[in-house]
Nucleic acid binder design. Structure first.
Lengths: 234, 234
DNA sequence: CGTACCGTTGAGCAGGCTCAACCGCTGTGG
DNA sequence: CCACAGCGGTTGAGCCTGCTCAACGGTACG
């Protein structure tokens, strides 16, 4: 049954124990339908605000398809993008009564929405399910820490390259093709660079024949050696 | 019974629901003794490595007193400090079979150590306890995201000031006194600055009469207005 | 076909990094 | 008791990279 893999929302994370190299699907079919029973599936076009920083936190969301960005607007008008979320990611969890980040869709997305109180009730009665969520949030924490490592880097080319690898490991695309669904401005705000610097860094990578453009929102790694060298030059 | 507050390890985090302003103690006395029963209490002097990046993950730790730093060493020899952990914080959780960060004590610490497999077994049988850990890890995630916002800032004075506020909110010291237990070098690696920049930033804050030194590892905010102005100038 | 947004490229500036010297405290050994 | 070495912290000089401001190009969409 192909349908079984669509029988409700899913979570992806690396387990605590000595599991596979990286993230795996966490929830059992039973757990997925359990969550589906307390959630509603919604679809949204691109550029839609899903939840807003500071507003009362009603719901928790799980992404099923598409890409969203999580960000915070600063008094100066600058915007900090704190992360991009893909299929099998969860958000809306990090608050205490109020969301502390805004989440906006980048591509059209489908996601499951559930009331935070309903989810909390369900979790309190199901240790196994709660444990899965614990794994997932721990995984998010790991990603955030890696983000910290990336933006600690000083050179624009290095940051952009590390970002490309994150995208590569995330999207399970075929051989060396990397999809960049978000705008340069989003990338810049995520990496703590100006958008010009992002553009220049990509341009430099291309001119030195390390990557090749495939449209403006996709690249291909053509010199894996030098690509990896930049990564480890951190 | 004064002893009751020392009856085992504790966790501190902001709850999901509309709770207090900030973090609260999570575990019930019963849960604390439950964890204590599967943990061993250890004391360590300062500058001790607790667990090392890449090594096989045996244990999860809860800090009871003292300060530790979590960091990662990069190929270039540079060191990224990803966070400082205080009483009621947990670490060792973020791995999959291996620790992905090194943790080292800064001050003498007392902490509870438990085998990760034992903890996992306990959690799988107790939804309420697992939920508490979920809250805690979510809280850690929030802190990491705030860290991201801090180091996104460009100016050294701003980053240092935001760091001082984090320390202030963390340590529950009396009026405007802020303890800085870690070295300038640690602060620099945490903020993504050179240690000279940290030193200069603190010096500038002092010369402009916004803070006053109290020894090298403590300061006092003497002009709260301008202090806050720097914070919101982000 | 025009407009608006995204992306790219250029010129000049500023802030933080690097290198280097110096200071003060601590602990050690003669 | 003092000399010395080591470490953490501060300060200075000069360089370098990414930011800012600005103009231009291309593509998508009305």
């Amino acid at each position: 049954m192909v349908e079984s893999i669509d029988a409700g929302p899913s979570l992806r994370a690396a387990p605590f124990g000595p599991g596979m190299r990286d993230a795996v699907r966490l929830l059992s079919p039973r757990q997925r339908s359990q969550i589906a029973s307390i959630a509603t599936c919604v679809e949204m076009p691109g550029r839609t605000i899903v939840c807003r920083e500071g507003s009362s936190a009603q719901s928790v969301f799980i992404v099923t398809s598409g890409v969203v960005k999580m960000f915070r607007d600063l008094p100066s008008g600058k915007r900090r993008v704190l992360g991009f979320l893909f299929a099998d990611d969860v958000f809306g969890l990090a608050q205490n009564g109020h969301y502390d980040n805004t989440v906006q869709t980048i591509t059209p997305v489908t996601l499951y929405r559930m009331r935070v109180s309903t989810l909390a009730d369900t979790l309190r009665r199901d240790a196994e399910l709660t444990f899965q969520f614990l794994c997932k949030v721990t995984h998010e924490l790991r990603r955030s820490l890696r983000h910290n490592v990336i933006i600690a880097r000083r050179d624009a080319v290095g940051r952009v390259t590390m970002f490309l690898r994150v995208l590569e490991q995330n999207g399970l695309l075929e051989d060396s093709r990397i999809d960049i669904p978000m705008s340069r401005s989003d990338v810049a705000n995520y990496l703590g660079l100006s958008l010009e610097s992002v553009s220049r860094a990509l341009g430099r990578l291309e001119r030195s024949r390390i990557i090749a453009y495939e449209g403006r929102h996709g690249i291909r790694v053509v010199d894996r050696n030098r690509f990896d060298k930049i990564l480890s030059a951190l």
